[in-house]
Amino acid sequence: MPTLHTINKSPFDRNSLQTCLRLANKGAAVILIEDGVYGAMKGNTVSATVEKALSDLSIYVLGPDMKARGVDESKIIDGIKVVDYKGFVDLTVENDKINAWL
């Protein structure tokens, strides 16, 4: 039963992204929304953990939340897919359940 995990906090404020990546099963999807989008960026102390997780998980980031925060697509880790709201809805439909990390 595939799971969609949502992360809405910066990995520098909370450890929800790190814990989610530790507990997400192979094949799960993770979407970074709101302040969670900072976790999709290259070149920081969390990037290596996120890059490693990409071998087992599909990671997405919500474009409008990036744009609002001035996070350009060129700053996003390779392999993370940028989706719009419609793409977010598709992910919720494709997965059996959602784990909304706090």
């Binding site: 039963m1 799971t3 530790r22 507990l23 997400a24 099963n25 359940k97 959602i98 784990n99 909304a100 990390w101 706090l102």
Partner: peptide, 14 residues
């Protein structure tokens, strides 16, 4: 724990 979570129907995070 990852495997146990996968077997659930509904997950609530607190």
């Amino acid at each position: 724990l990852a495997e146990i979570l996968e077997q659930q129907d509904v997950v609530f995070s607190f």
